[in-house]
Design a binder for these strands. Structure first.
Length: 477
RNA sequence: GACCCCUUCGUCUAUCGGUUAGGACACAAGAUUUUCAUUCUUGUAAGAGGGGUUCGAUUCCCCUAGGGGUCGCCA
């Protein structure tokens, strides 16, 4: 059996799409699991859709999620170049072979002509495909048009009576009648190849063993098989992944969802959560496990366990998973990741030990990274008290609570949670207050809100000096 | 419309002919908790429909229905 070589072949039209990420991830996992090679190939054969910086962006996104390729732009490999616009001669050469063998033919039809043809076919209720009018052109006619510099394309001549069949690794046996396949354009009038030609040629020369791609490619697979045959090549194994879906079960689109990987990262989703979640969109291990690290995925992944049906992108579950990683990653790791968000919040950082305690308290109640920094506000620069809260704080009972704590709490030294616990219990009996009447004034004075971490944790974070400062500030003499 | 693919709780899924159809998210209730959370327990909830094959079908086959994809000089 051939060594496993798989490629992720995006077109540089913008950012890494969630669907693209899933394909790249499965490519990567499959390669790692089987000791194969993972290749990145840039399919930039459409000059009109080229976006400046998109390739760099794509690679950066992949790298930021710890998905690294073995061959590709920037790092090279034995089968480069890995950018299709740098391989044009190769495509021209193979196209010429096709033309010579009669498997391809020149077509001079203008877009307008084709449009009209399609409209008519549609009206007649026919299958819409090129009617091969240029196939009837005489040698002399072609020469004349060529001499006249008329723009033209090269089309693949599909066989007339042929049923293509192949065994998709996920879908099993698939059969399609060649009559359903159009005479695909191979070389555009600008001399660039179309996806179909370029992908087939590259898959061959790059010795790709498994073509792993989205299900949207399933119906053009006969063309690709035919191309391989016409060029005298062996076909790779076909693997068509189920689609990722919008809530209404249509193909995932930016109409209904955020689809850019970068934007999820920018919102404060963790790479671990994104990867884990996306991996589970179409793949599931043999057991009931829900959380996997990238390494664990590499170890467990298999194409046999990829499902056939599309999967809805469920934000609620992604959120849960992100919260799970927030709570289960090592604390210092979460601190590290939340640092940039303190900066965007405009918060200056407390000393490391205090920061760690704040993050420890925050991670229990947050879903996204920026929420941690936002949560830290109550300790670092609490919000203004509302009129209502101020009134409550100035009530006689509230003042008693604050005064009592002011007199009981140490003014310096370390903060011992156990000691605080007993002081707090003490206050309940001494003041004859409990519940909201007892705790709320404290919270309001200390963190300017009625909800927050447990009191001991809050005390430890603030420290005696700050506690007395904040108590004193709300005390009316 | 033609062709192709798909079909288990609302969502992601397990099951590879015999299960009280399991897990996770979401939702609900309860427990822990001074609050908010976390955590734990429990609950609601599914084999699209119809035919076969079989002692026995969620599982295999066929039909129907529904959903999706493709039908570009885009990938």
């Amino acid at each position: 059996m051939n060594p496993v070589r798989v490629r992720f072949a995006p077109s540089p039209t913008g950012y890494l799409h969630i669907g693209g990420l899933r394909t790249a991830l499965y490519d990567f996992l499959f390669a790692r699991h089987s000791g194969g090679t993972f290749i990145l190939r840039i399919e930039d054969t459409d000059r009109s859709r080229y976006v400046e910086g998109a390739v760099e962006n794509l690679i950066a996104s992949l790298h930021s999620l710890d998905i690294h390729f073995d061959e590709g732009p920037g790092i090279g490999g034995d089968f480069g170049p890995y950018i299709q616009s740098q391989r044009l001669e190769l495509y021209q050469r193979e196209a010429a072979r096709l033309l010579g063998s009669g498997h391809a033919y020149r077509c001079f039809c203008s877009p307008e002509t084709l449009n009209q043809m399609r409209q008519e076919q549609q009206q007649r209720g026919e299958f819409v495909k090129y009617d091969r009018r240029c196939l009837a052109l005489s040698e002399a006619g072609i020469e004349a048009k060529l001499a006249n510099n008329e723009p033209h394309v090269l089309r693949l001549k599909m066989p007339d009576n042929r049923v293509f069949s192949f065994d998709d690794l996920i879908r099993g046996h698939v059969e399609m009648d060649a009559a359903q396949s159009d005479d695909q354009v191979l070389i555009k009038s600008d001399g660039f190849p179309t996806y179909h030609l370029a992908a087939v040629v590259d898959d061959h020369y790059m010795r790709i063993s498994h073509v792993i791609r989205g299900e949207e490619w399933l119906s053009s697979t006969p063309k690709h098989i035919w191309l391989h045959e016409c060029l005298g090549w062996q076909t790779p194994l076909w693997v068509h992944l189920p689609l990722i879906l919008n809530p209404d079960r249509s193909k995932l689109s930016k109409r209904m969802n955020d689809v850019s990987v970068e934007s999820y990262l920018q919102k404060g989703y963790l790479k671990e959560a994104l990867l884990n979640f996306v991996a589970l969109l179409g793949w599931h291990g043999a057991d009931d496990r829900e959380t996997y690290s990238l390494d664990e995925l590499c170890a467990e992944f298999s194409l046999q366990r990829v499902s056939k049906s599309g999967a809805v992108f469920d934000l609620a579950k992604l959120d849960w998973m992100n919260g799970w990683y927030l709570r289960n990653l090592p604390l210092d790791e979460v601190v590290e990741r939340s640092l940039p968000w303190f900066e965007t919040e405009g918060l200056s950082l407390p000393e490391p030990a205090t920061l760690a305690r704040i993050v420890a308290a925050a991670r229990e109640r947050c879903t996204l990274l920026p929420e941690i920094a936002a949560y830290a506000r109550m300790f670092l620069c609490p919000a203004e008290l509302s009129e209502q809260d101020r009134d409550f704080l100035h009530s006689e009972d509230s003042q008693r609570v604050l005064r009592w704590f002011q007199s009981q709490l140490p003014r310096s030294g370390g903060v011992d949670p156990a000691a605080i616990d007993s002081i707090v219990k003490n206050g309940i009996s001494e003041l004859g207050l409990k519940g909201k009447a007892y705790y709320t004034p404290l919270r309001l004075a200390l963190i300017h809100q009625s909800h927050g971490p447990e009191l001991p944790a809050t005390f430890v974070i603030l420290g005696w000096e700050e506690i007395h400062r904040r108590l004193g500030r709300e005390l009316r003499s």
